[in-house]
Amino acid sequence: MSAPHRRTRPHPDRTEPRRTWWPEGSQSAKPPTEPAPKDAASQASGPADRPRQTAYDTVNGAYQLIDEYLRQGQRMAESIWLPSEGEHAQRPEAAHVPNRLLRAMGDMTMAWLEMLQQSAPAPGARNPAPAGTAGPFSAGKSSPVATPRDSGAVAAHAGLTVCVQASRPVEVSVELTRQLEHPNLVATELRPPAPGAGPSSEITVDVSQLEASSRVDIVVPEALSPGSYSGLLLDAETERPCGTVYVRVI
């Protein structure tokens, strides 16, 4: 009996990947790292299309070059100037961070001073009330200078005077964030920071204008619940915020 005819697979044309698939006549020194897109240029095979394909290869090479360059360029540029400390050198970024912070702070300070100089009036002119901050300072029974009842505290900073009347310990901070030539301030009602909380009408904040400054009178009632209360100082004419008032009832 004869052996049955066995069906076999046809012998393949090749048994390993073709790694030299780029077209003949290509000017590139190395093969591209990615396959060329399947467009008309890459599928050109005739002699008439070869010049165009050659130009396409050059431009494809240019794309790969700039992509590689951008990935490597910055690291390479930095490595040229690093001290020769081998592989265990500290990361340069960490070593220079404190100096960078100092420089940044120095730049900010310099810019702030230059801005103040530019906005300063000419010599001999009357100086407008500068923006200022008063507080935080404490008033109330625990204050060493307060009287048992109607205790109050007064703090003055250039351009701003704050008077607090409270019969219990409180912490107050008043800040002017904008310098006004002729300040005419009003205060909003203070309210707790909780979302949706209504304004507290129990703390009274009155703002009056003195000759060269503003005076803020704050009265904290005895029965007010402990907590934090804050509000805004507004320019009465423009209603733009000029500062903040913060009261913490201890």
């Binding site: 000017q27 590139s28 020194a29 090479g61 240019a62 070059l65």
Partner: peptide, 11 residues
Amino acid sequence: VSERDYLLMIL
């Protein structure tokens, strides 16, 4: 000198 070398040089 290849075209890639040239492109790198003019870059």
